[in-house]
Design a protein around this nucleic acid. Sequence first.
DNA 1: AACTGAATCAACCGCGTGATA
DNA 2: TTATCACGCGGTTGATTCAGT
Length: 349
Amino acid sequence: MGHHSCCNKQKVKRGLWSPEEDEKLINYITTYGHGCWSSVPKLAGLHRCGKSCRLRWINYLRPDLKRGSFSSQEAALIIELHSILGNRWAQIAKHLPGRTDNEVKNFWNSSIKKKLLSHDVFPSLSTFFCNGSIESFFPLSTENPSLINPHHHNHQDHLYLPISSPILHGNFDHNDIKIDINNYNSYFLHIQNPMLQTVVSSNNPSFFEDSWSLGSVLSHLNPSQEIQITKSDATTHHHYNIVEKFINPSTLQHYDLVEPNITVPKVCDSIEDYVYNIPYNSSVSQEQHEALERVQCYTPSICPQDDQTLVAKNQMEYIDALIISSFQSTATSSSIVTKPIIPSTLDYS
DNA sequence: AACTGAATCAACCGCGTGATA
DNA sequence: TTATCACGCGGTTGATTCAGT
């Protein structure tokens, strides 16, 4: 295993970065900008290769990074974008302000992918519905008007799940569906209806808050989760301290930073860029083009505005909901599901 | 309390691509 | 046109942390 050309010239340190190294790198870049990364280590007084410096800056030290757990909206966006873009983590991350490709990739591999695999066996889904929040995941439907959010009467703007899956009617054979993670994209691309739904909880206004920034996450999490975040962010605190120390708002503009409170961009805008950048003679199939166009048509409802939100009891449940919905869509992918069926009674005990 | 397996995530590696000489 | 270099990306690794026994 060789090293990068920039690393061959001198002995470079590898492994985790020390606070002192971080400090040097931040100090240098905030003062001079990174310029040519290969020259950064020498100029910054670091015994690292330029590539390592770049990675450290991009994935960890950049002041515009959002730390903490992914919000349900972000998770939804990732799932949606991944269904279209595949493992183009950098492309996906571009639509998640403050998130890096590495972060998105890790999140996918550690959380979402795991969920997908675990859903290969459907009985595990019972946990998803066992907390009395099942209504939160039902589509708004004329067949269930009580669940219609008064804020969103125009349900053409919403996405509906084909919720008529047998699993909800109690006769689901979990051997019927096997997900091949490698063909996950193709499942989505076959979906005629969008796989996401807008879910609202009419009896819990707090769920309308889009409030998964780190600070507010803590107020919503149970104590164990709070502890976990606090622990896992131990190094982040170090990062914040350094950033606070060295970076002031006037210097940030040099680095094309996003505003800290920027909202998640609309998928439709994001995808639009991608669609327009796809050459017609590229490897992207007609099918994929069509899928992208479909997403463009439906994306408003999965890009919650201030008064809209995707609801979840917590992040993992929300991912569950998305995955379930994709399975249900997949199971009926050969036909267009125009009207979801909501079971009137359910018993998941 | 100690051990162990699982989960997480920062960092590394190799490759592809574009710019430049 | 070719060679070289730097950058960016996606896949993978491995150290650390967490959770269960």
